[in-house]
Design a protein around this nucleic acid. Structure first.
Lengths: 246, 246
DNA sequence: CGCCCACTTGACCACGATCAATACCGGTGG
DNA sequence: CCACCGGTATTGATCGTGGTCAAGTGGGCG
């Protein structure tokens, strides 16, 4: 884990100018429209830029870990992470894959309940909770945007819950793929890059690696998907895939 | 579904006084400390009281339904509800059982994605989104409290997700019971009133009614619980139950 | 070239779903 | 008060999906 410019909030006051120079202005941030700061006006975005720094993670770097406290909040700029919980028996449940525009950080608990790990080279926008809170009193839209994002993820988590409870293996894998595609029109519509391993998909869908693999094979045999390499999936028939997923 | 005092926001201004007289003041609300309004000072609570009304539901009454829009937000005062989604194949997944203190209502989507139905006689505190939003600009603590509640439910939903993905039937039922007990110390610590049916528990845990019933029987045989009537459960050995749940 | 790790495929087994029968409980009316 | 009825819960028997264990394949990187 490498911070491009490690920065504690105490030094912030006297370095605001420098920070502003070094930071990309938020206005040019390409995930801004989908992030919590979407509601801010350009002038206000500049004030936000003063308290944010960029963070770069390599594959397998840990952003934060279960049980640690953390005075920062994050927004994913590029790349992707996995957010998971380790169970006592050595099993692991992935509760989400934060993608660009997604918000990460402590809610109100003093400590993290999940671990966040980078799946690929990932960049994040970081700011201290303290600075952020100070700014919030001035910029109520910010908290509003945060609330909006929280409700969005709440919705997606609940939706995913219905997947886990009531669908068979093939349906789970199918809707996982659709979920990724619709969250992320990366370039061409029906080619999907999977930054996560089969094991990650298993831990997300509540299946085993073997069953995930078998499901991919079945989908391939039925010509619903094409598997170029393990991480490159073509959706050959999104409609039939959607019908299958329900 | 019966509203004690149906109230559209247009008439609010001229009737504020009357409302205030009719409403119980929020300060004396017994769920207030656990709800989104916990952060407000007494004087500010009075202003909140002006925009809220009480709502009473009987068993099986629908508070809101999937696909409908709704300009209100709710906090459960007493009773309990189930929040669920119907799947195309006729199955149903319950994503939560809102209990006193819990917040209910649209996030940012225009329409509800879930249906909320009363499990018993239930009372709620209702206010229009519009009035609430107006108040929010004056009372930033309110939005803060809302955000806090949202993060709390996000956490509990994510935790429940790990239940669905990675635990067997007995573990799911065991942790369901523990979850209810710790969320709700109703009177004596280890006696649990279940307002929901076995079918509801099945739809929440992702099992079938039969399996839920079998799990209850197994727990009873192992002397982990005592079943007085279907809705009255004694937790005879919470430690062993917790050990089982993991 | 060879090693390691991720992925795939196969054979078998167990847990929970399904189908079916019975028991129980609450409410209603005679 | 009891008899009846409908919905809910329990228990049993069988089947199928997906987990487990094991072997084999492939790709990336030193």
């Amino acid at each position: 884990m490498t911070t491009t410019r490690p920065q504690s909030s105490e030094f912030l006051a006297q370095r605001e100018n420098e920070q502003f120079m070094l930071s990309e202005p938020c206005a040019s941030c390409h995930v801004q429209p989908w992030s919590a700061c979407a509601l801010l006006t350009p002038e206000r975005l500049d004030r936000l830029a003063c308290i944010t720094t960029k963070l770069r993670l390599s594959k397998h770097d840990i952003l934060f870990e279960t049980g640690t406290s953390d005075d920062h909040i994050y927004t994913v700029i590029s790349g992707a992470l996995k957010l998971y919980q380790n169970l006592p028996n050595g099993q692991r449940q992935i509760v989400g894959f934060p993608y660009p525009g997604d918000f990460l950080g402590l809610g109100t608990q003093p400590k993290h309940d999940f671990t966040a790990e980078a799946l690929t080279e990932t960049t994040l926008c970081q700011s201290s909770r303290h600075d952020f809170a100070r700014l919030q009193t001035d910029l109520p839209e910010l908290e509003h945007g945060l609330l909006q994002k929280a409700f969005e993820t709440l919705f997606s988590v609940r939706t995913h819950m219905t997947q886990l409870g009531r669908r068979n293996a093939l349906q789970r894998v199918a809707s996982f793929l659709l979920q990724l595609v619709q969250r992320h029109d990366q370039g061409s519509r029906w080619i999907l890059r999977l930054p996560m391993t089969r094991a990650d998909i298993a831990d997300y869908t509540g299946l085993t690696v073997e069953t995930v693999s078998r499901s991919f094979s079945t989908l391939r045999q039925r010509k619903l998907i094409g598997v170029d390499t393990v991480g490159n999936i073509h959706l050959l028939s999104p409609e039939r895939l959607r019908a299958l997923a329900g």
